Simulated scan of single mutants.
Amino acid sequence: MTSSPEKPAEKSADPVDSLVLHATDNHVSWITLNRPEALNAITPDQRERLIQHLSHASSDPDVRAVVITATGRGFCAGADLRGGPSTGGPPAGEPPAGERVAGERVAGERVAGERVAGERVAGERVAGDVARMIRLGAQRLIGAVLDCEKPVIAAVNGTAAGLGAHLALACDLVLAADSAKFIEVFVRRGLVPDGGGIYLLPRLIGPQRAKELMFFGDALTAADAARLGLVNRVVPPDDLEKTARDWAERLATGPTRALALTKQLVNASLDTDRTTAFAAEAAAQEINMTTTDANEGVAAFTERRTPHYRGR
């Protein structure tokens, strides 16, 4: 994969850059998880880098589509619960070492043997910690995919489990190698599905199918995922990158703002009543008709020629 001449890849000394590869090619932002030895389980640092790349794709007019994929035999094994390489920053929602938080006492301030109500001791987890970690961590990542203003394609090369499955399913289009698997692994760990799964799966396949996957935690083959409607297309592993590139470059030549508004409307449609949905649709078309691409599309239709969209 090569970077486009107008936006060459920049070298960085940040070690996370080797764990989340990035390049822009033909107006497509390619984001690649690169911890194959850990089946691309996501560390907090990688999660933040993914969010940064998706945010940049939204704001950069030269990026008109995004592909998320991975190296090795796994797409993403979920959040890294064992602890992977880190740049040393604290986990989301936790204070840096040595920094005092509200209500905390330091050495010299405590009466011997006293524990003040509400004070946290080393290693202690208090109510709200887990919810905060999920809200500021996995849910932010899934939200970044759903809210990205450019079409996002998942090219699932292998097993997508837990948060990794939700990362793929949050994308606008899902391509999968025929060797890929999707696993709602949470029940195997005695956990409630998080990272947006409770929101995504019922909307994609209905509540009863979603509960079947979440209650049993069985591996779903790529073919079965396609049959359920979770995957758009299953291809041989050797064809996955080519198919993703073909789809992404086709999207990158389309009316980018119209696609962004369409994505926004579809994602919101299941949460709104008909009156609200109709009003949002009409307002979106009003906004879209001010774009250069909409004018080009209408002109090309009347002039009986192929439109040339610029993403503006």
Rank of each mutant, 00 (worst) to 15 (best):
D293S: 03
D293N: 06
N267S: 04
V192Q: 13
G83A: 00
L228M: 14
L136G: 05
L141M: 11
R233A: 09
V28P: 07
A252T: 04
N232L: 06
P236H: 06
G190N: 07
P307D: 15
A300I: 00
A38W: 15
R257D: 07
L175R: 13
D224K: 06
A79N: 14
R209P: 03
T272E: 15
R312G: 12
P255S: 00
S4G: 03
V121G: 13
A300Y: 04
R100K: 15
R257P: 10
A144Q: 01
L21E: 10
A165D: 05
L50C: 11
L146S: 01
E286Q: 11
M289L: 03
L146E: 00
I205S: 02
L21V: 02
H166C: 06
T2M: 13
P95K: 08
G103C: 12
A248M: 02
L50T: 07
G158V: 01
R140Y: 02
K211W: 15
G108K: 05
D273H: 06
G93C: 09
A283I: 02
A122D: 10
L204I: 01
R233M: 08
T292A: 01
V121R: 13
S59N: 13
T159P: 15
R312F: 14
R257Y: 13
A283K: 12
T256K: 13
S55D: 05
V231P: 05
D238E: 15
V111D: 15
G88F: 12
K263G: 07
I205W: 02
L81G: 00
A112N: 01
E241F: 14
E149A: 01
R110W: 11
A299Y: 12
D238N: 09
D129G: 01
F186P: 04
T2G: 08
S29H: 08
A282V: 04
L19F: 10
A248L: 05
G84S: 09
F301Y: 15
V66P: 01
L81D: 02
A177C: 12
A155N: 00
R233S: 09
N232M: 06
A280H: 12
M1L: 12
K263D: 08
P307S: 14
D293T: 03
R73P: 11
K7G: 01
R105K: 14
